[in-house]
Each structure stands twice: as structure tokens, then as C-alpha cells.
Amino acid sequence: MRAFLFPGQGSQAVGMGAALADASRVARDVFAEVDEALGQNLSRLMREGPEDELKLTENAQPAIMANALAVFRSLTVEGGVSLEKAAQFVAGHSLGEYSALAAAGAFDLATTARLLKLRGQAMQRAVPVGEGAMAALLGADVELARRIAATAAEGEVCEVANDNDPSQVVLSGHKGAIDRAIALAKEMGAKRAVALPVSAPFHCSLMQPAADEMAEALAATRIAAPEVALIANVTAAPSANPDTIREHLVAQVTAMVRWRESVAAMADQGVEEFVELGGKVLGPMVKRIAPDVRVTSVVTIDDIEALAKEIA
């Protein structure tokens, strides 16, 4: 069994998708469709930068999705790979869940791009720059991370944002609380703590205004049942009902990304190969969660052709 995975924020880089667009008409069409949907030359920003502008949440989120869907469509259209035959599950890390849903036919590409543009803008509006922060705890599991967060909070928000793998958990909240968590982490048992270069405290209760904006947008959005089962971030369980998917996407803005549990659930269901489309950030996490599975990252046209040949 196989699962297709889609990366989240942090996987953006100037030049992303450029070589693929040069090699694939289908990829060029994806980038053009996203540009048209947004009324923005996002593909040029992806290709040429500047990096500071690409890193802005409202640009990074649709850019990462566009790159992943360009890889996916090149695989399925030019490579002749059927999603339903190739994979039993799709999943994405945070914004990658939108990419996974688009790949599985729940959203069309233009809708996905607009939703992610709004999601990025709403997340940035929710908390003024400088008031929130995030930190990665290395050598810590989720139980230890929760203890560190509770100790550091002191009346402020300090919550587990991402349970990425058995040795990496991310905290999110008020900057003061996150600073205290970083200072406390080692003495409480973590190997180390690293402040993350983010512009907002994602996946914590401070994001509630963004969740409210996404609830309104998603209420007006048609969602189809995905062609293969989606493993949802907020439940680490299959999600196929459009109304349930809508609820999960709203909850996802403030809730913890249960990535470790999601990968473990797919492995328990018999998934032996995890294919990351459009990035190389999820593979190492997957191997730390399920060491015996096979992990493949598909980014270039050569990667796409190799996977298409293997699946065929």
C-alpha cells in the first residue's frame, strides 16, 4: 500500500518549480491557473523571488500547494498514473492538507489557491507581528512538550502546535511564553529548543480569528468527497464526508497537527511506501515514526518519470 504526502510551510524556496515548469507543460498549466485564480504572478515570485516576499505566509501557502500540485498533475497526466490505483491514502502537513484534498478531487485548483491565500492572510491578521512565536523542541515527545508548555505559560498561551515525530514537537503561543519554554526546555528533559523564523503563532488558540474567517469562506465552498481517503490533521483518522472535512479544516487552524499519529495510523493500515510530492521535509519525519517503511520524495521531472515507471 502507498500514501501520497504533501508538505507544509517551510518547504518554500526561491526557484521552486522552475525546472519542472521548464520540463512539463502540465506543470506550467498548473502555475498559470494558480496565477489567474489569485490575480498575481505567483509563479514568477516562486521562480525569481525575492525570498522575503515568497516567505510571507499569504504567498508561501499557495506557492507550496502550486508546486506540489504541479508535481502531482505531471505524475498523473503526463505519467499516466491513476491516484485511485497508486495510493490508498493522501495526507498533508498543515496547509498540505489542502494540497492533498485538491489532489484527491475535493477542491478544484483555483479554489484551493484562493482558500490558501485567504488562510495565509487571515493567519497573519490574527496576531500582530512580534506578539506570537513558535519553537521546536528536539529530543522531546508530545507528553514532555505539554509539560514544558504548561510550565512556561504563566497565564499566556503556550500550546503544542505540531506533534511531528517521536523526537520533534513544536510549541506555539505568546512570544513571552515561548521564550520561557525555550529557556526551560533543556532542564525539563528536552535535548534543545529552537525558535522558529515564523511571522505568526500557527496552530494555537491565538489563531481563533483566522479560524472564524476560514469557517466563513469554507461554508461558501463546495467540497466533493475525495477520491481516496484523507487522513485529517486534527483526528489522525480517515475523513471522507465533505461536511466533516469542512469542520476539520476550520478546527485545523487552532488545533495541533497530529502528524506522528497520522503516519502511524497509515502504517498500521498497511502502508509500506510514503511518497512526498513537491518536497523533502516530511520524509525524515516519516522514517522516525515508521522506520521500516519506504520513503520517496518526488520533486523533479526525473523523480516523476521514475515513480510513474515504477507504478506502471
Rank of each mutant, 00 (worst) to 15 (best):
V281T: 13
R73T: 13
A219K: 15
A255Y: 12
P242Y: 00
L307Y: 02
T221G: 13
S43R: 08
V129L: 14
R246A: 10
A21P: 00
S11Y: 03
L95Q: 15
A122Q: 07
T112W: 06
A217K: 02
F107L: 15
G155P: 03
D179V: 08
F6N: 03
G130T: 04
A217S: 05
S74M: 08
C204Y: 10
A217H: 01
G130D: 04
Q12T: 00
A133C: 05
V77L: 13
M256Q: 15
H174W: 04
A113M: 03
G79R: 05
A264R: 15
D141I: 01
P166T: 04
G8A: 11
V250C: 07
S199M: 03
G132H: 02
S167R: 02
Q124W: 11
H174T: 04
K117D: 15
A290I: 06
G139P: 01
P209T: 07
A195N: 01
A103L: 12
E305L: 13
P166E: 05
E154V: 06
V250H: 05
P209C: 11
M46G: 05
D292H: 14
A86H: 09
N59L: 03
L184V: 02
G10F: 03
G155V: 08
E310S: 15
G17C: 04
E261Q: 15
E78L: 14
R260E: 15
D52F: 09
R73P: 09
E227S: 15
R125E: 15
N41V: 11
A236K: 10
E261P: 09
K280M: 03
E273L: 08
V286H: 04
N41R: 14
V198T: 14
L83G: 11
D292N: 13
V77S: 03
A236G: 08
A19M: 02
E213C: 08
V34K: 01
R180D: 07
M285V: 13
A122R: 03
G189A: 00
A215K: 13
G176S: 02
A150W: 06
G17E: 08
I289F: 09
H203L: 11
V30W: 07
M46R: 03
K191H: 08
A220L: 14
A37S: 06
D268G: 00
A86I: 04
E78K: 05
A200E: 11
R294T: 14
L171T: 00
V298F: 05
A240P: 10
